[in-house]
Nucleic acid binder design. Structure first.
Lengths: 216, 216
DNA sequence: AGCCTAACTGAACATTCAGTCAGGCACAAG
DNA sequence: CTTGTGCCTGACTGAATGTTCAGTTAGGCT
């Protein structure tokens, strides 16, 4: 059925295909989605997909540049505006980009090659933004600022990649509007404001790490 | 080629099949692996796989119970011994379980149904262990202990799911021996000992959250 | 020896997939 | 009216996949 399109869908076939593909790729994966399914969703013949995008791989690349490009643009915009409160916040500009986060989650999970470049850019941007944040007193200083920034990015992206588990365990919707991620924010801010380790544990952890350093 | 097996591999066919399947499933995904490939790896006919496991799905279930069961057992053992330093540490008992973490990573990424039960158990265990830790002074108290524990678990599992990115960005190998994850530990302990938010930011964050709470 | 069972195989099977091909249809330009 | 020129389609192909099936081999038991 062409659930993706209203009865009178005057968008061009190419747009409907791209839309259906993004949705299917996001929740079934690329390998788990056939061109037939996408064609049916878009109310279009399978041959038209190949006509427009050359191949399934071509369609995948088109989806990647569409979605990942949009995310990239938002990241740059957020960076330019100097917003830096939460890495997640970079993405959560909702509306027509409703499909962006699930698509990103699936791309991360599949280890899609095109997502590597995006993650690398996010990494650079996060390291830079957090250095700024330390400088202007938003964040506390760190002995390992780069590692700290990257781990925080990994945690944020990892939570997105596991958003189904997050929803099940916490009842928080990481792909939806800000209000939906309240439970997640509670846990995250708890950890990021006061930390987790007590005074007693800090030394033990520090010792364990220096021991590891010497072992290598 | 039967790279998985030494020239004189006297293990039973069933074992070789299971071993090859776990390896292939872990790094190509279930859908991305054909029975023919597994059969070739194990030096066995394709029909033998079906003979032993009934179907590809049967083989998948066998792999799941094998690996996820092993992880489960280690978790229970760690819980019984009262170790609770790091959730990751629960898994890192290496040796013959070298394939466990990559397999878990792939299962998490694919959203395999059998991993849901395991994650739920890990969640219960984490919540419980962290409550203990607060009681005996290992961890600092929290306003939202459950959310905090679950977010920490999600972060840990998310990092495993994204271990390729972790390796690329941080040079840390989350699936290997403890020494390999040093850069990750540095960033993580930095965040978990001192937190991230400065005094100035705490109030802003707290305000933002209470505002979200009222909006709903 | 005869028998039974489990391990194992090669060949064939039906299905699904991405991709090809020849052509229809609408509409604008000459 | 004729000639394109995009957009689009149904019918088709070759390759790959999971599964079935008839049969072979080996070893233990009576």
């Amino acid at each position: 059925m062409d659930a993706a399109s209203t009865p009178a869908d005057d968008r061009t076939g190419r747009e409907r295909i791209l839309d259906a593909a993004i949705r299917r790729f996001a929740d079934q994966g690329v390998d788990g989605t056939s061109l037939r399914t996408i064609a049916a969703d878009a109310g279009v013949s399978q041959a038209l997909i190949v006509h427009h995008f050359g191949s399934k791989e071509g369609l995948r690349e088109a989806c990647d540049t569409h979605i990942l490009g949009a995310i990239r643009a938002q990241m740059r915009q957020a960076a330019a505006e100097g917003r830096d409160l939460d890495v997640l916040e970079t993405f959560r500009r909702r509306q027509e980009h409703a499909a962006a986060l699930p698509y990103l989650a699936r791309s991360l999970a599949e280890g899609a090659p095109s997502v590597v470049a995006l993650v690398d850019e996010l990494a650079d941007e996060t390291v830079r933004a957090m250095a700024d944040g330390v400088e202007n007193g938003t964040y506390v200083p760190s002995e390992h600022p780069r590692e700290r920034a990257l781990v925080l990015l990994i945690w944020s992206l990892g939570a997105i990649a596991l958003h189904d588990h997050v929803r099940r365990l916490l009842g928080a919707d990481l792909t939806g509007d800000p209000a939906g991620l309240l439970p997640y924010l509670r846990g995250a801010t708890d950890l990021l404001t006061d930390g987790l380790f007590s005074e007693a544990l800090r030394d033990r952890v520090r010792d364990a790490i220096t021991q590891l350093e010497q072992e290598r």
